[in-house]
């Protein structure tokens, strides 16, 4: 009896282990990522932000210098007006108008360019983040990775299901060229 029972128990245990392993493997693997953190700590975002700030500062300096010239000329015109120097006023007025137009045009163009640049950079950043998170999910066998962005898309999740740090490390390593093999 003992001789029959022992192999039977062994077979049952092994079968159950396999079955449990199979069931576990079939279960969806779910995790969530704090997208705000990934976005803000993404190396590419930091690089582009620096680039954008440099460009915006340069543009601001250009505008400031134009504004200064405009203010000086405006004060000169006011002096002409107060002293009744009509000839001086007539002579310098077209110059003031031209400078004012140039200032306004540049201000508008810079605003539009800054906006377009911000949008373009943001699109590029998200394109890369989305790709790397997708690669991460595939490589680590996740069924779903949910993105929490602080707007209420994930209202509650167990702490153990957060993979932000892993994703961030993967995203930054992929950006630096590992080709998704990290």
């Amino acid at each position: 009896m003992k001789k029959v029972l022992l192999p039977l128990i062994c077979i049952t245990v092994v079968t159950m282990a396999f079955a449990m392993g199979f069931i576990y493997a079939k279960q969806p693997r779910l995790a969530y990522v704090n997208l705000d953190k990934v976005y803000n700590d993404f190396e590419m975002k930091k690089e582009l932000e620096k680039k954008l700030t440099t460009v915006q500062d340069m543009r601001k300096r250009q505008l400031d210098s134009l504004e200064l010239g405009l203010n000086i000329l405006s004060r000169t015109l006011q002096n002409f007006e107060m002293s009744g120097n009509k000839k001086g006023l007539e002579e310098r007025m077209p110059e003031f108008e031209m400078l004012r137009q140039e200032y306004l045009q540049k201000q508008q163009a810079f605003e539009q360019d800054n906006q377009a640049m911000t949008q373009q950079y943001s699109e590029q950043i998200w394109k890369q983040i989305n790709q790397y998170v997708k690669d991460f999910g595939k490589n680590k066998n996740y069924t779903y990775i949910l993105g929490g962005d602080g707007t209420g898309s994930i209202m509650y999740a167990q702490e153990g299901n957060e993979i932000t740090a892993d994703v961030l490390a993967y995203v930054n390593e992929s950006y630096k060229g590992s080709g998704g093999k990290n």
Partner: peptide, 9 residues
């Protein structure tokens, strides 16, 4: 291409 900076190692 609109992808931004690409690095491959």
């Amino acid at each position: 291409l609109g992808t931004g900076k690409i690095m491959i190692r």
